[in-house]
């Protein structure tokens, strides 16, 4: 009995030492957790999470400063993935940070735009092109729909338009499992 205990303890110790050694030896450089979290975040760069962009938020989550339910563009699915990655409980989107909306792009009403460049400065991804006092347009493919350009516009000419489905983006639905009561 005693020998068994001793053997078990010895084995446990050896294994523990091995594990400890391995974790030191194979320690990954950099912070892959931040990378992984950042990969899940939608990169809308809207700042609704309370951080100036997705990466800062990722860093904050990794260091435990922020919760996982603060990103409205990522929505439920994003939170679920984060919860999965971090081994935490899923929680619904925190209301103070906003609500999940359909993905949209900004559209500038070119008749009203005065070319003030304020939106260009606001856009986190340089999706608006135009020079001072010239018409500005949004490059739809690059717009993340962050809405940051809407407020700064002095003439309110920027509107967010939900992206419409095309044949190229249309998705087959999950097959409905219809287990009917066999008559």
């Amino acid at each position: 009995m005693l020998t068994a205990l001793l053997v078990m303890t010895a084995v446990a110790l050896v294994l523990g030492a091995l594990l400890g050694y391995a974790s030191l030896k194979f320690k990954v450089e950099g912070d892959p957790l931040v990378e992984k979290i950042d990969a899940i975040l939608p990169q809308t760069q809207c700042g609704q999470c309370g951080f100036p962009g997705c990466r800062p938020y990722a860093t904050a989550i990794a260091s435990g400063e922020a919760d996982i339910n603060q990103c409205p563009p990522g929505g439920e699915e994003g939170i679920r993935k984060l919860a999965d990655l971090l081994g935490r409980e899923f929680k619904s989107l925190s209301e103070e940070h906003g609500v999940e909306k359909p993905k949209s792009v900004a559209v500038i009403d070119e008749n009203t735009c005065i070319g003030c460049t304020l939106c260009i400065q606001a856009c986190p991804v340089d999706a608006i092109v135009g020079a001072a006092k010239q018409l500005h347009t949004v490059v739809a493919g690059e717009c993340t729909g962050c809405e940051l350009c809407v407020a700064p516009c002095p003439v309110d000419c920027i509107a967010m338009e939900p992206i419409t489905e095309t044949v190229d983006t249309w998705k087959w639905r999950y097959p409905v499992i219809q287990i009917k009561q066999a008559a």
Partner: peptide, 17 residues
């Protein structure tokens, strides 16, 4: 599609910064 557009957004965001 989502991934490539979010990767692009990340790059552009980092470039802007």
């Amino acid at each position: 599609r989502d991934k490539s557009s979010s990767d692009a957004a990340r790059d552009r965001f980092e470039f802007k910064n």
